[in-house]
């Protein structure tokens, strides 16, 4: 088998299979959680639940990643904020606003959108990779994280890290031939897609639940979140 045919497999049938597994797996996760049942809250509100939810999402999307230092716990543990912020920013910008990724979306969805210039995406991707490294080091040195981290946590880290690094190397033609890097990138992306529903990387879906619940809980009590 040549690199060319491996690549074709990884970006062809395997990619679509992984994508289907990802979608089905996430739907399964969603349905099983929702089907556990939701009891009705009969307690009268003091403040506004809806207002709380809106503020909760604004805080989650604007404050946490961009101005975390307004939170007083920031000073106690800045690494996790900086690492987590850099990683998520780099990741989302790259996969949504990087031209090659947009083209993948376009082929899947049928429409595209304007993207950011390569150098911008590139630097944010570097930030994302550095963020990942910070998170790994932090996981090894922080006593709480050492306690709560098992093989699953480190594997999840690796599964996310490999596509990022191979993607970056591809863009800059580093160390290996382009097809080799591209093949590795695609295989690792395929594996990531399969691994997401099987691991905590799926947190992005439940994020919308937990932030909404957070907003409701504080909102109904009339406490600003």
């Amino acid at each position: 088998m040549t690199w060319q045919s491996a690549l074709e497999f990884a970006r062809g049938p395997l990619f679509y299979g992984a994508l289907l597994f990802f979608i089905a797996g996430m739907l399964y996760r969603l349905v099983t959680v929702v089907a556990l049942g939701w009891s009705k809250d009969r307690v009268p509100d003091k403040g506004s639940k809806a207002g709380g939810v809106v503020r909760s999402f604004l805080k989650g999307i604007l404050i946490w990643p961009f101005i975390p230092w307004v939170k007083n716990t920031f000073s106690r543990n800045p690494l996790i904020y900086i690492g987590g912020g850099l990683f998520h920013l780099g990741l989302f910008v790259t996969i949504l606003l990087g031209t090659p990724h947009m083209l993948v979306w376009k082929s899947l969805l049928g429409f595209g959108w304007p993207t950011l210039p390569l150098p911008v995406v590139d630097w944010l991707a570097v930030g994302g990779i550095i963020g990942m490294l910070i998170l790994l080091v932090h996981r090894r040195i922080n006593p709480v994280l050492r306690l709560i981290s098992g093989p699953a946590e480190y594997l999840a880290w690796l599964v996310v890290f490999v596509p990022m690094v191979t993607g970056y190397m591809m863009t800059h033609h580093l160390f290996f031939r382009y097809e080799v890097l591209y093949t590795f990138h695609m295989f690792s992306v395929d594996f990531l897609l399969i691994w997401i529903p099987l691991s905590r990387i799926s947190h992005f879906m439940f994020y919308f639940f937990s932030r909404a619940i957070h907003g409701q809980q504080f909102g109904k009590r009339g406490v600003r979140v």
Partner: peptide, 9 residues
């Protein structure tokens, strides 16, 4: 849903 959201950070 909240247990599932935890990223163990």
């Amino acid at each position: 849903s909240q247990l599932e959201a935890c990223t163990r950070c």
